[in-house]
């Protein structure tokens, strides 16, 4: 297994380099103009100078290599320096990947936005899983019961109604219709500046997280509970379940030890595979609730033709996707004794 992991990790390097190049190529081919948002009164020569100052006059491959140098060498070295005070080379004047629109290092922007995304989107993911797994198990065990029917109906809704609809609906109900003094009132705007340093603030934080988390959790749970149900049903009809019952095991043991253990194998894989989505943020939901997370950052970057930002952010998502693919494979190997990688 270790061998396999190392081998796989090794092979991700060329893959990721290739991906980074493709991203760069696509962004370069896109009809982008970083000066496009500037006032019309700015004369063309000035625009040209601005473009030059951003390094846009250099050929594509030079710009790509520069980005590679900045991202793969300078940024890690900078992290070492900032986190561990471990200085290699010229630590103060290193050129980092900088956003064109804000001029601040892209990695700093990302680090700044990460907590909001992890809190809201990550939490929604955890809540979604916690809701989905029991629902999936019970729906499968009591197939076609009223519980299963209602579960099917709700997950159909959660699955097919877009988050921008459920989000706005919740806002209308809980922020508009319900009186602001009521216990059930919830804020529609996520306040990033809130510092949780007391129970009162913690309560505020919880309240402002409820709606975005619920919107996303519903969506995630809808998918995952269906998946869990299908996987359970696959296994419930297997011969080994009959064997387990014929041994005299309790129904609970049959279900939660024998069947669940098998059903979790594909489900865990799916969960692992979709973790990168958490980091990707939920672009729409973050917009609706004004959560300034990574999804929003990406949108701003795209709108402002901020190529280094978009390039870096997209590439980090790519890294996460490749990485969690590997994690999923490894988990599969750990959970299923029939899989041997070596």
């Amino acid at each position: 297994m270790l061998n396999y992991t190392i081998r796989r990790l090794f092979f991700t390097i060329p893959t990721l380099l290739f991906i980074s190049f493709v991203i760069f190529l696509i962004l370069d081919m896109a009809p982008n103009d970083p000066t496009g948002n500037l006032p019309m009164t700015i004369p063309p020569e000035v625009r040209e100078n601005i473009r030059k100052s951003l390094g846009l006059d250099a050929p594509m491959y030079v710009r790509y290599l520069l980005w590679c140098n900045q991202f793969f060498i300078n940024e890690p070295l900078n992290l070492l320096y900032e986190w561990f005070d471990w200085c290699i080379g010229d630590c103060e004047n290193r050129t980092r990947v900088r956003s064109w629109s804000t001029r601040s290092p892209v990695v700093d922007l990302i680090v700044e936005r990460m907590p909001q995304t992890l809190w809201v989107v990550g939490m929604s993911y955890v809540v979604g899983i916690l809701i989905a797994l029991p629902i999936g198990v019970i729906s499968a065990y009591k197939q076609y019961s009223w519980f299963d029917q209602i579960g099917t109906f709700i997950s159909m809704i959660g699955f097919s109604v877009p988050t921008f609809f459920t989000g706005v609906l919740l806002i209308v109900i809980f922020s508009v219709w319900i009186d602001q003094d009521s216990w059930f009132w919830l804020p529609s705007i996520y306040d990033t500046t809130l510092v949780v340093d007391s129970w009162g603030n913690f309560w505020l934080q919880v309240r402002q997280m409820i709606m975005p988390v619920m919107v996303l959790a519903l969506y995630n749970a809808a998918q995952l509970s269906r998946f869990m149900r299908a996987s359970m049903l696959d296994n419930l009809s297997q011969d080994y379940v009959r064997t387990a019952r014929a041994k005299g095991l309790k129904e609970k043991t049959v279900l939660l030890v024998h069947v669940l253990r098998n059903s979790m194998i594909p489900v865990v894989t799916v969960i692992a595979l979709s973790v990168p989505q958490v980091f990707g943020g939920a672009i729409i939901t973050e917009q609706i609730f004004r959560v300034n997370g990574l999804g929003q950052l990406l949108i701003i970057g795209i709108q402002g033709a901020d190529i280094p930002l978009v390039q870096t952010l997209t590439f980090i998502f790519a890294v996460l996707i490749v990485l969690f693919n590997l994690v999923a494979d490894i988990l599969y190997g750990l959970l299923d004794p029939r899989i041997r990688y070596d």
Partner: peptide, 28 residues
Amino acid sequence: SDDELRRVRGGEIGFIFQDPMTSLNPVF
């Protein structure tokens, strides 16, 4: 009752099934 029945299953009456390839749980 279910409990009595379970004591008989596997305790006093043993079962062997047709297909040994699928009758055992693959992950234990």
